[in-house]
């Protein structure tokens, strides 16, 4: 999946499931949208569905430090790249 495709899907998830309103790519999700650890874990479940495979414990732990939408995209791209190797 390209970064643009990922962005479209992630924005749809954030707006539909997490009720974000017009999030900016570099908004601090915690401070500006109330995105907490529980949201991060829920989002990971949705990312797993989107990618079609399960994330390891270590990969999930890394996701807990995500702060922006760009971080989410970087995170998914890294996961995809590591699985393709």
């Amino acid at each position: 999946m390209s970064r643009d495709e990922l962005l479209t899907k992630i924005l749809a998830i954030l707006e539909d499931d997490f009720e974000f309103e017009h999030p900016g790519l570099d908004d601090n999700l915690r401070d500006e949208h109330g995105f907490d650890s529980i949201d991060a874990i829920e989002l990971l479940g949705k990312i797993e569905l989107m990618l079609g495979f399960s994330l390891s414990r270590a990969e999930k732990e890394k996701a807990m430090s995500i702060r922006t939408i760009n971080d989410i995209l970087d995170y998914i791209e890294k996961i995809q790249a590591s699985r393709q190797q």
Binding site: S37, I38, A40, I41, E42, R57, K60, E61, M64
Partner: peptide, 16 residues
């Protein structure tokens, strides 16, 4: 209450 640092793993396990 805070799933940061060494409590990340615990938080993930509990929520899942």
């Amino acid at each position: 209450a805070d799933g940061a640092g060494r409590y990340r793993q615990m938080m993930i396990e509990q929520v899942e």
